[in-house]
């Protein structure tokens, strides 16, 4: 049984069939790539997986649970966390607080306890701080923990977004173009980070990416999307050799 099992997923915006009969099976611990030309519907797939869009038809199963059409927060609680193509951090919060918001569901105390500073507040805050610092250290962000998130350099903002997503303790991590806007050095570092996250946290990762070097370098399996439909799928090396895929990217 695959961790993420998507069958016959589809959505229309007005008359436009943005995604049609999409399917994917991601095994636990896999590093899976979703690629395709601009406008192929990759982010739309992500938005359906995370409940931002309601799928028109199809079925999404995560770890045996049907999560089709659930609310974003319920899908997160079921175990899917994501990052965004255009970075969406909590800009006016510190780096540390960004991660602590991610820990929100896992370290609970009541609002009253927070206002009256009851012992449970101190206890949980301490645990949260330790856990958040641990996560920040993994991403080499612990020195910047008191910076406002908006003051971080671009590459570190990407990393912080991954750290925040991991803080929710997901089963599946969705990365939407993690290398967008990065220089080759940063991309290489990011590749190491993604691999490290997979190994260290025993994480399953599904990522959208345009950078072929990154995709070829870390993804074990690929699905290629073109005009909303699956063009090819399989092992990375095979898929990248597929003449149909090359045509879709480079034209005739």
């Amino acid at each position: 049984m695959a961790l993420l099992d998507v069958k016959n997923l589809g959505i229309s915006f007005g008359g436009l069939r943005a995604v049609d009969s999409f399917h994917i099976e991601v095994e636990k611990g896999q590093l899976y790539g979703l690629i395709g030309p601009n406008g192929a519907g990759k982010t739309t797939v992500f938005n359906m997986l995370t409940g931002v869009y309601q799928p028109g038809d199809g079925k999404i199963t995560l770890d045996g649970n049907d999560i089709t059409g659930k609310r974003t927060i319920d899908i997160n609680r079921a175990g899917i966390a994501r990052t965004f193509q255009n970075i969406r951090l909590f800009k006016e919060l510190t780096v540390m607080d960004n991660v602590k918001v991610g820990l929100h569901e896992h370290y609970k105390y009541s609002t009253i306890a927070g206002i009256l500073r009851l012992p449970s507040y101190y206890k949980k805050e301490k645990e949260m701080n330790e856990k958040a610092l641990e996560l920040l250290k993994v991403f080499d962000l612990d020195k910047e923990k008191d910076f406002l998130a908006s003051n971080l350099p671009y590459g570190k903002q990407r990393k912080l977004e991954i750290a925040r997503a991991l803080a929710t303790n997901p089963k599946l991590l969705l990365l939407d173009e993690p290398a967008a806007g990065m220089n080759p050095n940063e991309t290489k570092e990011l590749m190491d980070t993604i691999r490290f996250v997979r190994d260290e946290f025993d994480m399953t990762i599904l990522l959208i990416e345009h950078d072929m070097k990154l995709v070829a370098g870390i993804c074990e399996k690929l699905t290629v999307l073109n005009f909303g439909q699956v063009l090819a799928e399989g092992n990375t090396a095979e898929v990248l050799k597929n003449p149909q895929v090359i045509t879709a990217y480079l034209g005739e």
Partner: peptide, 30 residues
């Protein structure tokens, strides 16, 4: 006392997270 303690607690962080980015806050289960 209420406002300053609220802001520096779990609920306050969630409130400010929603202010800064609603979609991201939703995506991490707030």
């Amino acid at each position: 006392f209420v406002i300053l303690n609220l802001v520096n607690s779990r609920a306050g962080r969630a409130i400010m997270a929603i202010r800064d980015n609603r979609i991201a806050a939703e995506s991490i289960g707030i």
